Simulated assay, not measured.
Amino acid sequence: MSCWLVFPGQGAQKPGMLHGLADEPLVRESIAEASAVLGEDVMQLDSAAALASTRAVQLCLLVAGVACARLLLQQAPAPAYVAGLSIGAYPAAVVAGALSFADALKLVSLRAELMQQAWPHGYGMTALIGLEPARVEALLAQVHSAATPVYLANINADNQVVIAGSDAAMADVVDRARSAGVVVGKRLAVSVPSHCPLLESAARLLAAAFEQVNVRAPQLGYLSSSRARPLYSGESIRDELAFNMCRIVDWRATLQGAYERGVRLQIELPPGQVLTGLARRVFSQGTTLCFEGTRLDTLVSLMQREGLRHL
């Protein structure tokens, strides 16, 4: 039995997310470090107005994840694995020791700018709940064209996927999905078409920047959410981080892979509880908790217990 830490992706952000973090020295130090590296006050990035920017969202998710993981691991034993959905892969890589926090901040700032510049208007992502991936792919084939691009982006659960593409194409898919019996079609708070070929050119530019950065072999188990398997080398993690913006996220398979490797305790780092909800069916014989809303000493105790079982 073991534990893993998971980090959410874009769409989990909320106004005030940095201001709501615990007032602890490690958290304050992480925020100060981020501000120094970026040359700006990161506490100004979590207002409702600022979070309209992809860059602000992604940086806030990175800072919140790293700061809270540092606070948790100051007292708790190291988890067996870490993983992150989309931008969440970056704080996961920092916590695993594969990437420095300073390098992650610079790369995420660039990543977000490249993504926003690639498709500044008229594109995004939509969640579909109620249809299995194969049926959604059939609907996408009916709608996709050069003028109305739309792709499968995330497989979150057996009946929950996310699509990415143009506004018109996504609206068409949602209409068809509702006719096919989909329960929910919800536009996400993401202004770019992530995890599809529309971002391949941006990913290649980011990969060029990654060539100047030292990415190391992880000190913890690092699960790729696009490949749904562990990555062991700095080079494989470099590729994962640079190109995950244009690759499908298979979180369903990543969850299953963690469970099959003996993980029975999942802790979701801030913000929110999206990944906790997705894990409950897979972790029916385990425990899934959010950092937010759970006492720190409770999380530490549970991680210590799972750590002893793992020995």
Rank of each mutant, 00 (worst) to 15 (best):
A89I: 02
A102R: 12
G130D: 07
G130Q: 11
T126I: 07
A96E: 04
A127E: 00
A96C: 12
L107H: 05
R111N: 00
I129P: 00
I87Y: 03
G124L: 04
A102H: 08
T126G: 03
S100T: 15
V94I: 12
L110D: 11
M125S: 06
G124D: 05
A118E: 06
L114V: 07
A102S: 15
G97N: 05
Q116V: 12
M115F: 07
L110N: 04
E132N: 10
A96D: 05
G124W: 01
L114E: 08
E132K: 15
Q117C: 11
L99Q: 10
Y90Q: 05
L128C: 05
L128K: 01
S100C: 09
Q117D: 14
M115Q: 12
Q116K: 14
A93V: 10
A112F: 08
F101S: 04
L131I: 07
P120V: 04
G97E: 07
K106P: 03
E113T: 15
L105N: 02
V108Q: 02
V95Y: 01
L105E: 06
T126Q: 14
L99R: 10
Q116A: 15
L128R: 06
G88D: 07
Q117T: 13
G130C: 10
L131E: 03
L110K: 14
V108K: 01
L131A: 04
S100D: 13
Y90L: 09
G88E: 10
D103K: 04
D103Q: 07
L99D: 01
G97D: 10
A104T: 06
L99N: 11
V94R: 01
R111V: 01
G88Y: 09
G130N: 08
A102V: 09
P91V: 09
A92D: 02
D103N: 11
L105W: 08
A112D: 02
G88R: 12
L114G: 00
